[in-house]
Amino acid sequence: MATSMERSALHVEGKDDLYAIVNLLMRHGVDYENRRSELPELREIGSCEKVLVGMETAVKTSTGRAIGFVLDADSPIENRWNAVRVRLQRVDVVVPGTPLPVGFVAESAKYKSTVGV
């Protein structure tokens, strides 16, 4: 549960991902345009590599709130997942060996942040 007054955030690779998330929200009845400031902040990071590079710092600085990462599940998915797993394990998040079709949500025990991929 979020305890910080700061907003939760979702890191996405590029503009396409940003629009995809906004459309998903709207499709599910979330009035994104008018409620944008109340919702988690969507951050366009620029590329998959940049999302991966910033992952640990983002978890470390998200105590008391949620931090999510949206990454393309392309080019051997095992490699991509392993890159995520290695980084999240360094910030005390227990990550399964293979990605789950429904997505992944867990807590960082050390930094007390909720992490989603």
Partner: peptide, 16 residues
């Protein structure tokens, strides 16, 4: 956070 992460957090607009 040390310099590298301070720069990274700024570039990715993380709220620190």
């Amino acid at each position: 956070l040390h310099a590298e992460e301070i720069i990274l957090a700024d570039e990715q607009r993380m709220e620190v």
